[in-house]
């Protein structure tokens, strides 16, 4: 009984450590520039193919199911693209540049200009 309790304690402790390591790893994930490049390119190529064949997104998204299981609608696609574009920018150290660009007059509409005056 004593040995069983001790073994259980060890298993629980190891399990907790593994979980901690995994959480720590997610928070400190190093974004791979090559992976993000490949992902963005594959998303662009997918969009280009579906546009040129006139396929409905619902039908075409079957092709993405392995690499992008969460993309089922066009909105999912846009969100995934935006996310990976931001990750790419992060990988090349472009966050400040992004803020500068978003501050430019011609891009204000993306962030909202406010009521007409």
């Amino acid at each position: 009984m004593k040995n069983l309790a001790r073994s259980l304690a060890i298993v629980l402790a190891v399990g907790a450590m593994i979980q901690t390591v995994c959480v720590y790893a997610l928070e400190n994930t190093i974004i791979s520039l090559e992976e993000e490049e490949a992902t963005i390119i594959s998303l662009i190529e997918f969009k280009r193919r579906t546009d040129s064949y006139g396929e409905s997104f619902q039908d075409a998204s079957y092709e993405l199911r392995n690499d992008f299981p969460n993309i089922k609608t066009e909105e999912d696609f846009k969100e995934a693209f935006a996310e990976h574009a931001l990750r790419y920018l992060h990988a090349i150290g472009g966050e400040k540049s992004l803020k500068r660009v978003l501050g430019k007059e011609e891009y204000q509409r993306l962030t909202g200009d406010g009521p007409g005056i």
Binding site: E105, Q108, R109, D113
Partner: peptide, 10 residues
């Protein structure tokens, strides 16, 4: 005109 100048107007 709105898109080009609304932000600058502020």
């Amino acid at each position: 005109n709105y898109l080009g100048a609304r932000a600058a107007a502020a």
